[in-house]
Design a protein around this nucleic acid. Structure first.
Lengths: 344, 344
DNA sequence: CTGAAAGCGCTAACAC
DNA sequence: GTGTTAGCGCTTTCAG
C-alpha cells in the first residue's frame, strides 16, 4: 500500500518523513537518532535539524520489535499510599537514571489476582526486567516469572523462596528483634495492633517473629486489635483506645506500621498517659513523618531506598559483585528506640 | 531467516508456537486470544488449552505495531510522596479498569526538563492518551502535547490555557476564598508558610489568590516563611516557631499544604498556644491524615480522586456530555473550617 | 467460520 | 560513512 499523495495531518511522523525532509536514508537517520555508528557531522546536523523541525518522536514500538530490546523495567508494588513504596521507587529511579532503562509501575492493592493480571500485562510488553514486591505469588504468577527469561528481583522480603534474585530484610527477624528489645526493657503485658490484610505477608511475618521473640522469654501477646481501611492515624487512635479499654493493664503496644503507631502515640499523649513509663509503644517502617511528632515513636527502618537501589542495580547489571542473576541481598534494619521505649 | 530446527529455550513464545501446538492457524489463534470474531467452541478450546499449556504471553509490541493501537495512557505527575497524587491515581485506575486502557506513570519531581524527557519517552510508545499535571510546560513539551494527535488532559489546575482538555480546580480562587474566610473570622495579622518550589505553580497561584483576597480587605501578608526539603511535619514545626519568633503578633498562619500545617498545629499545641483563639491555622489539600490529629486543621479539599476520575473518563471517551476533546471541567473545593479557625 | 498475504515502523546485518 | 534488504510478531484485509 503506497502512502496517500498528501500527508495525513493526523498521522504521526515516521523515520521516512525525516529521511525525505533531510535527504538522508532512513537507515542513517536511524543511526543519528540513536547515536549509533559513525555518521559525518554534516549528515548528523541535517538529520537533527529535520527531526527537530518536524517534531519527530521515534516510535519505540517499531524499534523494540525490530531490535528485540525494550528499555522498560516493570515494577510491581502493592500500594502507593503508605509512604513505603514511594521511597523504594526513588531508589529505583535514581539507579536506573543513567542506564537508559525506564521503570514502569503497576499497583496490585495487595490483591493476588490483580498482581497476576498486572504482571501478565507487563510481560506482554517484554520488559528488560521485573521488580516485584514480596515472595508470595499465585502459582500462575510464579510460573510467568519463572519462564519470562528476564531478570526478576523480588523485593522487601527475604523470608522465602525467590524466583530469581531477592533484595530485602527478614521481617521475621525484625519482629523477633523488636520483641527482644521490648522484653529486655522490662515490659511484660504486650499488645499487638495491626491491619486486617491477609495478603500483607510481611506484616504477618513480623508478627510471627514477634510472637517467637516473646515466646523465648516465656511470654505471649496479651491482646490483639485489627483494623480495615480508613485514615491510619485515626484508626491508630481508635484501636489504641479500644485495646486499652479491653485490657487496661497492657504495658506495651506493638503496631504493625508507623502510621497507626503515630495515631496511638498522639492518643496516649492526649490522655496524659505516661509514655514510655506506664506504656511503651513501637511501630515499623521508619517513616519520615515520625520526625515531626511530639515524641519520637520507636520503629525499625525498612531500608526502603536501599532496597530500590540494589534491585535496580541487579536489573541493570551493575552489581559490584559481578554476579548475574540469583542474587540474594539481605539488608539489616536498625532499631530506633526513639522516646517510646523505656531504657532498661 | 528460518528458525533453528531446535527451539531455543530462552526465546519467548510466539503465536506460531501456539498455532503449531494446537494445529490451528496463527490467524485463528490470534482471534481466540483477543476474543475477536466468530470462532467455533472446539477450535477456541484447542487454542486456549495450547496457550495455557505453553504459558504463552502475547507480544503487545508486535500487536501494537500491527494494529496501530496501544492500550496505554501516560500519566505524568510531579511527585509521588505528597499524598495528593496517589489519590488522583486511584481515581484514574478505577475509571480505566473496565476500558481495557492501562495507566503508565511518570514522575517529574517538579522539574520541567524531566517533564520534557518523561513526556518524550511516553509519546514514543504511542499511548492512547496523556494525563499530565499542570498547565505550565516547557515550549518543547507543549509542542509535543499539541502535535501528539491523541487526547491530552491537563489536571489539577484550570487557571491557564490548556492544550486540549483540563480538569481541576482554580487554585487562585481557592486562595482567595481562604483569605476571605479568615478575614471574615476577624483575623488581621496573617502569615504565610510555604515551600521553596518555584515550579509548584499551583501553590504559587493559591498564594496569589490569597494575597488578592487579603488586598480586597485592605490587608497584606504580615510575614512569610519558606522551606526546602525534609520531613514536612518537622519543617512545619520549625517554620512555625521561626515565623512566630520573628513576628510574635501574628494571629493567623496559612500553610501551603496540610503536612506542614499539621506540623505547625502540633507545635502550637505543644506550646500551649490557644488555637484558634489566639492563633488561627489553615492548610490545603484535605488529606486524610488530618483526621487523626488532636485538633482538625482547617483545609480545602483539592478534589483529587474526582479529578482522576474525570480525566480518565475524557481519555476513555466516556464523558456523559458526549463532547470529544477540548473539555474544561472545573471542580469546586469545599472549605473545611475544622477546629483551627474561630467562628466569626 | 478459517486461512493466506501484506504490511505496521523500525533496526540488524551486510554490501558498497 | 552510507545505503539496501530482510525481517521482528502480530493484525488487517480479503478470499475462501
Amino acid at each position: 500500500m503506497s502512502r496517500p499523495p498528501v500527508a495525513d495531518p493526523r498521522r504521526t511522523l515516521t523515520l521516512r518523513d525525516v529521511s525525505e525532509a533531510s535527504g538522508v536514508s532512513e537507515m542513517t537517520v536511524s543511526r543519528v537518532l540513536r547515536n549509533r555508528g559513525d555518521v559525518s557531522d554534516t549528515t548528523r546536523e541535517k538529520v537533527l535539524q529535520a527531526a527537530r523541525a518536524l517534531g519527530y518522536v521515534p516510535n519505540k514500538i517499531a524499534g523494540a520489535l525490530a531490535s528485540q530490546r525494550v528499555n522498560l523495567v516493570g515494577v510491581i508494588i502493592p500500594s502507593m499510599s503508605n509512604m513505603v513504596f514511594p521511597e523504594v521507587m526513588t531508589g529505583i529511579s535514581e539507579t536506573l537514571e543513567d542506564t537508559g532503562l525506564q521503570p514502569v509501575m503497576g499497583v496490585t492493592n495487595y490483591n493476588p489476582e490483580r498482581e497476576e493480571s498486572v504482571l501478565y500485562e507487563m510481560l506482554s510488553w517484554r520488559p528488560s526486567g521485573v521488580i516485584i514486591a514480596g515472595l508470595e505469588h499465585s502459582p500462575a504468577a510464579r510460573a510467568m516469572l519463572e519462564s519470562a527469561g528476564i531478570p526478576i528481583v523480588e523485593i522487601m522480603d527475604i523470608d522465602g523462596d525467590p524466583v530469581d534474585s531477592a533484595v530485602g530484610i527478614s521481617h521475621r527477624r525484625a519482629g523477633r528483634q523488636m520483641a527482644e528489645t521490648i522484653v529486655a526493657s522490662g515490659y511484660r503485658r504486650i499488645g499487638f495492633l495491626g491491619t486486617k490484610m491477609p495478603e500483607d505477608h510481611r506484616a504477618r511475618k513480623r508478627l510471627e517473629g514477634f510472637r517467637e521473640g516473646l515466646a523465648r522469654a516465656g511470654l505471649e501477646l496479651a491482646d490483639e486489635e485489627y483494623y480495615g481501611g480508613g485514615s491510619a492515624l485515626l484508626k491508630g487512635r481508635e484501636m489504641t483506645e479500644a485495646i486499652l479499654r479491653r485490657t487496661p493493664d497492657l504495658d506495651f503496644l506493638y503496631y504493625s506500621n508507623d502510621m497507626i503507631g503515630a495515631g496511638g502515640l498522639l492518643w496516649c499523649l492526649d490522655q496524659g498517659i505516661d509514655v514510655p513509663g506506664r506504656l511503651g509503644l513501637a511501630g515499623f517502617n521508619g517513616v519520615e513523618l515520625l520526625d515531626g511528632l511530639p515524641r519520637k515513636l520507636a520503629t525499625m527502618d525498612a531500608c526502603r531506598r536501599e532496597i530500590g537501589v540494589h534491585a535496580a542495580e541487579i536489573i541493570a547489571g551493575k552489581r559490584p559483585s559481578g554476579v548475574i542473576g540469583g542474587e540474594l541481598i539481605e539488608l539489616f534494619p536498625t532499631l530506633q528506640p526513639g522516646d517510646t521505649i523505656r531504657r532498661p
